[in-house]
């Protein structure tokens, strides 16, 4: 098992390297001059040309990638922080350290000062949502799937379809209309500051979490329901029933674990969605999160921030994949590595 995890970790690093190269290539090749993007539309052509030379943008792509990797790992100093450029980019950590993602031109701050804060906010939102989505989906999915075609099954399934088919912006606006405008129970925005309105931080989480949970658990419930229904038709469930076990024992002891195997991967994939796919919810509630930051960075052309954010999202995705493989092996003894 340890060898297996070690192998997968090596694979993870390899994946990140390849992916980072692709991201680098795409962002550097996107329309427009990197130097121009960095300096903004109103900078004089001379300073753009100067920066262009300073960054050696004439070099071939692999060379520039290696240089970027050098900055990231702290081997090379970040050229943007060179005072000669008069950009006034300053990083309190210095210009040469491991994990240097560069300088965000949008926020006028080192990337590291922006991204972790935002990621933390989103992780909080995602964590609360995930902590609700998983048990809710499992409970309702198993309840629906254990008696296929029953009244309970149909009710849960219809509810699941409705919840998933309403996009987040619609359900967000809907919930705001009810709880903010009509009932005045909750705040309509979640800037995570206690400033205007005097709403507590906790109350600011309620609506965004509700939107995410509704949207996502509808989908996961259906996955769990399908898998449970399939397992309930397996011969070993018949064996358990004909042993004389009560229905509760059959479901709990014999069906649930088998029914978890297939949806497990899907459930972990929800983490990826919750980290980088929640842009819409963050926009609706003005939530200072990772998705919104990525959107803003893309619109502005903040290359360093885009690269950093994509890498972080990729790292999250590959880590959840690793976790799902390990969990899968634990659930399913047949593929457990000796």
């Amino acid at each position: 098992m340890i060898a297996f995890i070690g192998k997968r970790l090596l694979g993870l690093v390899a994946t990140l390297l390849v992916a980072s190269f692709l991201v680098f290539a795409v962002t550097e090749f996107s329309p427009g001059n990197v130097a121009r993007k960095t300096l903004g539309p109103f900078a004089a052509q001379e300073s753009v040309d100067l920066l262009y030379q300073k960054l050696h943008l004439n070099d071939s792509l692999p060379v520039r990638y290696v240089r970027w990797l050098g900055v990231l790992t702290g081997v090379i100093a970040d050229p943007l922080q060179d005072p000669a450029l008069k950009l006034d980019f300053k990083d309190p950590r210095g210009d040469r350290y491991f994990g240097n993602f560069g300088y965000s031109t949008l926020y006028k701050l080192p990337v590291n000062d922006v991204i972790w804060n935002r990621l933390g906010n989103t992780a909080l939102l995602a964590g609360i949502s995930f902590a609700l989505i998983v048990p809710l989906s499992l409970i309702f999915g198993v309840l629906a799937g254990m008696r296929e075609g029953s009244f309970l099954d149909r009710t849960i399934s219809v509810f699941g379809i409705v919840a998933t088919s309403i996009p987040e912006f619609a359900s967000g606006v809907f919930l705001v209309a009810i709880f903010v405008v009509a009932l005045r129970l909750l705040p309509g925005t979640s800037p995570l500051t206690t400033g205007g309105g005097g709403w507590s931080i906790a109350s600011q989480f309620v609506l965004p979490v509700a939107v995410l949970v509704l949207y996502d658990s509808g989908y996961v419930v259906r996955m769990v329901r399908g898998s449970t229904a399939e397992v309930m038709n397996k011969p070993y469930i018949r064996t358990a029933v004909l042993k004389g076990l009560s229905f509760k024992t059959v479901v709990w002891r014999h069906a649930v674990r088998n029914a978890m195997i297939a949806p497990f991967t899907v459930i972990l994939l929800q983490i990826n969605f919750l980290i980088s796919g929640v842009v819409v919810t963050e926009m609706v509630f003005a939530y200072p999160g990772f998705g919104r930051m990525l959107l803003e960075a893309s619109l502005f052309g903040d290359i360093a921030l885009i690269e950093a954010a994509t890498l972080v999202a990729l790292a999250v995705a590959t880590t959840t994949q690793l976790l799902s493989d390990i969990g899968y092996a634990l659930l399913n003894p047949q593929i457990r590595v000796a």
């Binding site: 397996k234 011969p235 070993y236 018949r238 064996t239 358990a240 002891r253 014999h254 674990r257 088998n258 195997i261 659930l331 399913n332 003894p333 047949q334």
Partner: peptide, 13 residues
């Protein structure tokens, strides 16, 4: 006693 012992036993227990 069932036809296919592979299917009649719960694979995860």
């Amino acid at each position: 006693v069932y036809q296919d012992p592979n299917a009649a036993l719960n694979p995860t227990l």
